[in-house]
């Protein structure tokens, strides 16, 4: 865990960055266009990269530098590039089918954020300073919002982005709470993200070719 006595400017920076990270996930919830989602995800990953870099500089840990660099390469550049490239190649301009409308989604997101805060407060308030509780709560609410995105949007791309937001939440959680996590773990998690995204993209391309759409609303044949 981070030291108890962080300098004041660092407190402010971490608070600000995590607030923006939360905001970017709300941008995703409030949009109907797929490209918006992808850009918001890229910005979110970039903010997480800056946060990791700052923490690396503060704790002077080479591991965190490496992790930050790889985050920039994989989460911030490679994954959005793959997604946007695929959208351009298949000229996908679909709106997303929402099962829950945008205002209700935002209210739901707020509820999940508050829930995440209380959960994390109950869990770690005995031994963690306020700054850690705030950031960990935002990380947890990212995980919840990711799950909410998966269940409330009927497109393969938003399923992928929902999973990616969950992974971002877990990554933020582990960077804030356990900066000493072995480097190998972060490396394989990033590798895993890349492989999963590629696999899911191939599946959605196959789906697009076979059914003519990326909507998952029609996947209702297998029941019972």
């Amino acid at each position: 865990m981070l030291g108890l006595a962080l300098p004041i400017y660092l407190n402010v920076t971490i608070d600000l960055l995590t607030a923006f990270i939360l905001l970017s996930s709300f941008v995703m919830l409030s949009s109907k266009w797929i490209s918006f989602y992808i850009h918001a995800y890229g910005i979110q990953s970039f903010l997480i990269f800056i946060l990791t870099l700052i923490l690396g500089i503060e704790t002077q840990s080479v591991n965190l530098y490496m992790v930050a660099l790889l985050t920039l390469l994989v989460r911030c550049l490679a994954v959005p590039y793959l997604l946007l490239n695929m959208m351009k190649k298949f000229s996908i301009k679909e709106e997303i089918n929402l099962s829950i409308k945008i205002p209700a989604s935002i209210i739901m997101g707020l509820i999940l954020t508050v829930f995440g805060y209380f959960l994390i407060f109950r869990l770690i308030h005995n031994f963690a300073p306020d700054i850690i509780i705030n950031s960990a709560a935002i990380a947890l609410s990212l995980i919840f919002i990711g799950f909410f995105m998966i269940i409330s949007r009927y497109t393969t791309i938003t399923h992928i982005l929902g999973l990616l937001v969950i992974e971002n939440g877990i990554f933020l959680f582990s960077v804030i709470l356990t900066p000493t996590l072995p480097l190998i773990v972060e490396l394989v998690v990033l590798f895993d993200i890349l492989v999963t995204v590629v696999a899911m993209l191939i599946l959605s391309i196959v789906m697009k070719i076979k059914t003519g759409s990326l909507s998952t609303g029609m996947l209702n044949r297998l029941v019972g």
Binding site: L203, V206, M207, T211, T216, L219
Partner: peptide, 8 residues
């Protein structure tokens, strides 16, 4: 495809 997508 539906089964694989649900699975993954």
């Amino acid at each position: 495809i539906e089964a694989a997508w649900k699975y993954i």
